[in-house]
């Protein structure tokens, strides 16, 4: 079970969250049919770092974005909706534990 860094609440167990797929998909309603199909369905599905959406469903209820390595499942960053994707974090040195749960302290 993952330990997911909610940017609002801090690290919490996966049971409290729902994954909501790839992040940063522009809703290109003006695109042609192929472009719209790509908005709806086509995905990078990367083997490596993914920017993905989570919702802290049984917590603060907020959607947020996170960077995660899909090979190790280690989280690299989490950030709020609307914030740009952080620059590619440095690769995790071999043998070092993935940095997880780097969330901020809960706010009042």
């Amino acid at each position: 079970m993952l330990l997911i860094p909610c940017p609002y609440c801090g690290p919490r167990p996966e049971l409290e969250f729902r994954n909501a797929g790839h992040a940063h998909i522009a809703r290109a309603t003006a695109a042609d049919d192929q472009g719209w199909a790509e908005t709806l369905f086509y995905r990078d599905n990367p083997k490596g770092v993914i920017a993905e959406r989570w919702r802290h469903f049984s917590g603060c209820g907020r959607f947020f974005n996170a960077l995660r390595d899909t090979v190790s499942d280690g989280f690299l960053a989490s950030y709020r909706v609307g914030e740009p994707r952080p620059a590619a974090p440095p690769p995790i040195p071999e043998g070092e534990a993935p940095r997880i749960g780097a969330g901020e302290e809960p706010r009042p």
Binding site: R27, R53, F57, R62, G82
Partner: peptide, 13 residues
């Protein structure tokens, strides 16, 4: 509700 929250928080904030 999840669907509504999704659009409210991420598409139409």
């Amino acid at each position: 509700l999840h669907h509504m929250e999704d659009y409210l928080q991420t598409e139409f904030p």
